[in-house]
Design a binder for these strands. Sequence first.
RNA 1: GCCGCCAUAGCUCAGUUGGUUAGAGCACCAGAUUGUGGAUCUGGGGGUCCCCCGUUCAAGUCGGGGUGGCGGUACCA
Length: 498
Amino acid sequence: MSQVTDKQKIEARTPRGLADREAHELAATNRMLDVIRSVYELYGFEALETPAIEYTDALGKFLPDQDRPNEGVFSFQDDDEQWVSLRYDLTAPLARFVAQNYDRLPKPYRSYRSGAVYRNEKPGPGRFRQFMQFDADTVGSASPAADAEICMMAAVSLERLGIARGDYVIRLNSRKILDGVMQTIGLGGEENALKRLIVLRAIDKLDRLGIEGVRHLLGEGRKDESGDYTKGAGLSLGAIDTILSFCLAGQSSTHAASVDIAKLLENSAIGAEGFNELKEIENLVRAAGFGAERIRIDPSVVRGLEYYTGPVFEAELTFETKDEKGHAVRFGSIGGGGRYDGLVGRFRSETIPATGFSIGVSRLFAALKLVGSPIVSAQSATGPVVVLVLDRERLADYQQMVAQLRDAGVASELYLGGAGMKAQMKYADRRNSPLAIIQGSDEKARGEVQIKDLIAGAKAAAAISTNEEWKAQRPAQFSVPETELVARVQALLKPQSA
RNA sequence: GCCGCCAUAGCUCAGUUGGUUAGAGCACCAGAUUGUGGAUCUGGGGGUCCCCCGUUCAAGUCGGGGUGGCGGUACCA
């Protein structure tokens, strides 16, 4: 019987692309989120939370059909037959919230929010199907000042988190400029929509594939190392050169770049408009004291292809690091955003301009660890003081000690397991306890308790090689009168909590 | 989705041309030490050799199919 049930036991495991997070990481993440939150509030943004589930049609284009109801997004049918989905970003839910509550919200409405988002895609290293984003958005302002402010806020946040100036850059571009360039090479109009998409995707791969790789994607196509072939946009050589030189303009000196870009766009009204908007954003951030090493125009930024209508931003980490094989790698993008003037309007008859920025919390967290930011690499949290149980029949006495310590604000606990003293010490060690409280019958008879300093003890242990010594010395352990227990514990903990 | 590589204990891995009861290190638990973390020594628990089918007297090993993982690529709101 029991053998049969053993075989039927289910394997304990997390679903693909999902992960547990334990105490240490949670504490570090919360410190990081606190920093971002404080910056956003300093900039005048207020908190908002929306649910993880929305009606599918509110999220956007991924309407489930019979064939592929879960492509990209996790969806299921409610008991009233309506399709609902797990949110895949925090922007679409915000648009829904603003549209739903438009009349009573102050306009422009400035809010921030963080939370888990879900994507039903192939997971990979650093890519999960549930991950956390931290967003800030201004809804109801068409002013470039709103965009400028979002970019500055992103820059300040990164610096407060411990990323040095020069190790990151906020890169700026505009969908209007990209459209303008397409126009000048003859890719305007509805009939070229697919080609424009291919071109944008190719540009987006510039950092990974290099100039030559993108050149192939703009032309005939490209075959990768695994033998897979990607069909190209089929542009003429002249058009390819135009696009490439445009994209690379941001990497030369900024003044020359501006001249080049302006000249390229002089025949495109939409391009010129986008360029003027970018220049205005640039003027605003420069006036606020943000130089080109922090925020700069870069025509190769593409970002999400779907709902952006104007300026787009990308926060990139520029320092190089080594992977385990010793190859130099760049960390890359840890957040981005842009203007999405059409998103709220899907719910209302009027167009409502909006702009926002989204931080990939997990990726940024990994980056902060890499640069050794104290916000995430602080020492592991100390556990509770553990009161050992030596005489089972005196549980009430031990519980009373714990109560006294807790009343005094000392995190503490009674050992609740059934094991012997050695195992209890081991438990305290594993819990990262600073102190263990010991009272057997001998100490009780004398009206004393033993306090063992586990941190000092571990240091002393390093110098001891034989068990006899170890036993004889009992390092960092001493007796105090029962009545002084709380005071002595508090005194011992003080330097650690300071 | 497409291409390639891989799958043996919790982890990292050995396992000979197919051959008896599948091993090691680390980790875990216990004892040496009535009541003390570490070190040392001794012992112990832990296995669907990813799954199914096939070849064979015999499969962890060979063949086919599947599943899962890793890497690349495509998509990524």
